[in-house]
Amino acid sequence: MGLHKILKIVAFALAIIGAIVALIIIAGDEDTALSMSGNMLLIAYAVLGIVILLVLLFVIKGLFAGDIKKTLMTVGAFAVVIIISYVISSGSDLNLQPFNDKGLGITEAISKNVGAGLNAFYILAVLAIGSMLLGGVKKLFNK
Protein backbone atom coordinates (compact mmCIF):
# COMPACT_ATOMS: atom_id res chain seq x y z
CA MET A 1 0.00 0.00 0.00
CA GLY A 2 1.49 3.31 -1.05
CA LEU A 3 1.98 6.31 1.20
CA HIS A 4 -0.59 8.25 -0.80
CA LYS A 5 -3.31 5.67 -0.08
CA ILE A 6 -2.42 5.60 3.61
CA LEU A 7 -2.62 9.38 3.81
CA LYS A 8 -5.99 9.37 2.05
CA ILE A 9 -7.32 6.83 4.55
CA VAL A 10 -5.99 8.85 7.52
CA ALA A 11 -7.46 12.07 6.12
CA PHE A 12 -10.83 10.37 5.56
CA ALA A 13 -10.84 8.93 9.09
CA LEU A 14 -9.99 12.32 10.62
CA ALA A 15 -12.72 13.96 8.55
CA ILE A 16 -15.29 11.46 9.83
CA ILE A 17 -14.16 11.95 13.43
CA GLY A 18 -14.36 15.73 13.01
CA ALA A 19 -17.83 15.53 11.50
CA ILE A 20 -19.08 13.32 14.34
CA VAL A 21 -17.65 15.64 16.99
CA ALA A 22 -19.14 18.67 15.21
CA LEU A 23 -22.56 17.02 15.12
CA ILE A 24 -22.32 16.19 18.82
CA ILE A 25 -21.45 19.82 19.58
CA ILE A 26 -24.38 21.09 17.51
CA ALA A 27 -26.90 18.58 18.90
CA GLY A 28 -25.77 18.63 22.54
CA ASP A 29 -26.59 20.98 25.38
CA GLU A 30 -24.28 23.76 26.57
CA ASP A 31 -22.19 21.59 28.92
CA THR A 32 -21.67 18.96 26.26
CA ALA A 33 -20.79 21.62 23.71
CA LEU A 34 -18.13 23.11 25.98
CA SER A 35 -16.52 19.76 26.74
CA MET A 36 -16.74 18.62 23.11
CA SER A 37 -15.24 21.84 21.81
CA GLY A 38 -12.18 21.05 23.90
CA ASN A 39 -12.06 17.65 22.22
CA MET A 40 -12.38 19.35 18.84
CA LEU A 41 -9.37 21.49 19.69
CA LEU A 42 -7.40 18.36 20.58
CA ILE A 43 -8.29 16.83 17.23
CA ALA A 44 -7.26 20.05 15.48
CA TYR A 45 -3.91 20.01 17.30
CA ALA A 46 -3.39 16.36 16.36
CA VAL A 47 -4.13 17.08 12.70
CA LEU A 48 -1.84 20.11 12.78
CA GLY A 49 0.94 18.00 14.28
CA ILE A 50 0.49 15.29 11.65
CA VAL A 51 0.54 17.85 8.84
CA ILE A 52 3.68 19.55 10.17
CA LEU A 53 5.40 16.19 10.59
CA LEU A 54 4.52 15.13 7.04
CA VAL A 55 5.61 18.46 5.59
CA LEU A 56 8.97 18.19 7.35
CA LEU A 57 9.33 14.59 6.19
CA PHE A 58 8.67 15.43 2.54
CA VAL A 59 10.84 18.55 2.66
CA ILE A 60 13.80 16.59 4.04
CA LYS A 61 13.16 13.80 1.51
CA GLY A 62 13.08 16.40 -1.29
CA LEU A 63 16.30 17.98 -0.05
CA PHE A 64 18.22 14.75 -0.35
CA ALA A 65 16.56 13.69 -3.62
CA GLY A 66 17.12 16.99 -5.42
CA ASP A 67 20.06 19.22 -6.28
CA ILE A 68 21.62 20.12 -2.92
CA LYS A 69 23.70 22.98 -4.38
CA LYS A 70 20.62 24.73 -5.75
CA THR A 71 18.79 24.21 -2.47
CA LEU A 72 21.63 25.66 -0.40
CA MET A 73 21.87 28.67 -2.72
CA THR A 74 18.13 29.32 -2.30
CA VAL A 75 18.32 29.00 1.49
CA GLY A 76 21.37 31.29 1.50
CA ALA A 77 19.56 33.90 -0.60
CA PHE A 78 16.60 33.77 1.79
CA ALA A 79 18.97 34.19 4.76
CA VAL A 80 20.58 37.22 3.06
CA VAL A 81 17.12 38.80 2.61
CA ILE A 82 16.32 38.21 6.29
CA ILE A 83 19.67 39.68 7.41
CA ILE A 84 19.27 42.74 5.17
CA SER A 85 15.72 43.22 6.48
CA TYR A 86 16.92 43.06 10.07
CA VAL A 87 19.77 45.50 9.44
CA ILE A 88 17.59 48.14 7.76
CA SER A 89 14.83 48.01 10.38
CA SER A 90 15.36 50.53 13.15
CA GLY A 91 12.82 49.67 15.82
CA SER A 92 12.96 53.19 17.23
CA ASP A 93 10.75 54.90 14.65
CA LEU A 94 7.59 54.21 16.65
CA ASN A 95 6.37 55.83 19.83
CA LEU A 96 6.04 52.80 22.12
CA GLN A 97 4.63 54.68 25.13
CA PRO A 98 0.92 54.30 24.21
CA PHE A 99 1.38 50.55 23.76
CA ASN A 100 3.19 50.17 27.06
CA ASP A 101 0.54 52.26 28.86
CA LYS A 102 -1.98 49.60 27.82
CA GLY A 103 0.20 46.88 29.33
CA LEU A 104 1.35 45.31 26.07
CA GLY A 105 5.05 45.44 26.98
CA ILE A 106 6.34 46.17 23.49
CA THR A 107 10.06 46.85 23.52
CA GLU A 108 12.34 48.33 20.91
CA ALA A 109 13.67 44.83 20.12
CA ILE A 110 10.15 43.56 19.43
CA SER A 111 9.50 46.57 17.23
CA LYS A 112 12.76 45.90 15.36
CA ASN A 113 11.78 42.25 14.78
CA VAL A 114 8.34 43.25 13.48
CA GLY A 115 9.95 45.82 11.18
CA ALA A 116 12.41 43.20 9.92
CA GLY A 117 9.56 40.82 9.16
CA LEU A 118 7.67 43.51 7.26
CA ASN A 119 10.77 44.50 5.32
CA ALA A 120 11.47 40.86 4.44
CA PHE A 121 7.88 40.47 3.25
CA TYR A 122 8.14 43.57 1.07
CA ILE A 123 11.47 42.51 -0.43
CA LEU A 124 10.25 38.97 -1.16
CA ALA A 125 6.97 40.28 -2.61
CA VAL A 126 8.82 42.63 -4.95
CA LEU A 127 11.15 39.80 -6.01
CA ALA A 128 8.22 37.44 -6.64
CA ILE A 129 6.24 39.99 -8.64
CA GLY A 130 9.36 40.98 -10.57
CA SER A 131 10.18 37.38 -11.45
CA MET A 132 6.61 36.77 -12.66
CA LEU A 133 6.71 39.91 -14.79
CA LEU A 134 10.14 39.00 -16.18
CA GLY A 135 8.92 35.51 -17.07
CA GLY A 136 5.86 36.94 -18.78
CA VAL A 137 7.92 39.43 -20.79
CA LYS A 138 10.35 36.70 -21.86
CA LYS A 139 7.44 34.53 -23.04
CA LEU A 140 6.03 37.44 -25.02
CA PHE A 141 9.28 38.07 -26.86
CA ASN A 142 10.12 34.40 -27.46
CA LYS A 143 6.88 33.68 -29.34
Rank of each mutant, 00 (worst) to 15 (best):
F78S: 12
P98F: 03
L104R: 01
D101Y: 00
N113L: 15
A65W: 01
F99S: 03
V75R: 00
Q97G: 00
D93L: 10
G117T: 12
G115A: 09
L104T: 02
S92V: 08
L72D: 00
V75P: 06
I106V: 15
I82Q: 03
L56Q: 07
G76W: 05
L96M: 04
K102V: 10
L118G: 07
S90Q: 12
N100F: 04
I88T: 10
G91C: 05
L94H: 10
I82L: 13
S90T: 14
T107Q: 09
G76M: 09
G115D: 06
S92L: 04
G76Q: 03
V114R: 00
I106P: 02
I106E: 02
S90C: 02
L63F: 14
A116Q: 07
Q97E: 15
E108M: 08
G103A: 02
F64H: 08
N95T: 10
L104E: 06
T107R: 06
D67S: 10
G117W: 08
I68K: 11
F121W: 12
L57Y: 15
F121V: 11
G115P: 11
S92I: 06
A109R: 10
K102A: 14
N119A: 15
L94E: 08
L57W: 10
N100M: 05
L118N: 13
S89K: 04
L118P: 01
G62A: 12
V59M: 09
S89T: 08
A109F: 14
M73K: 11
G76T: 11
S89R: 05
I83E: 01
K70M: 09
A109W: 11
I88C: 04
A65H: 08
I60R: 12
I68Q: 09
F99Y: 15
S92K: 13
G103F: 05
V87N: 02
A116W: 06
T71S: 13
S92Y: 10
N95A: 09
G76D: 04
N113E: 13
A65F: 05
A77G: 14
N119L: 07
G103L: 02
G91M: 02
I82P: 00
F58N: 05
I83C: 05
F64T: 06
F121G: 14
K102N: 01
V81F: 05
D101C: 00
V114H: 02
V59H: 06
A77F: 05
I83N: 00
V114N: 03
D93R: 05
D93H: 13
G62F: 04
G66Y: 07
L104S: 01
G115H: 06
A120R: 04
L118Q: 13
D101S: 10
I110Y: 12
I110V: 15
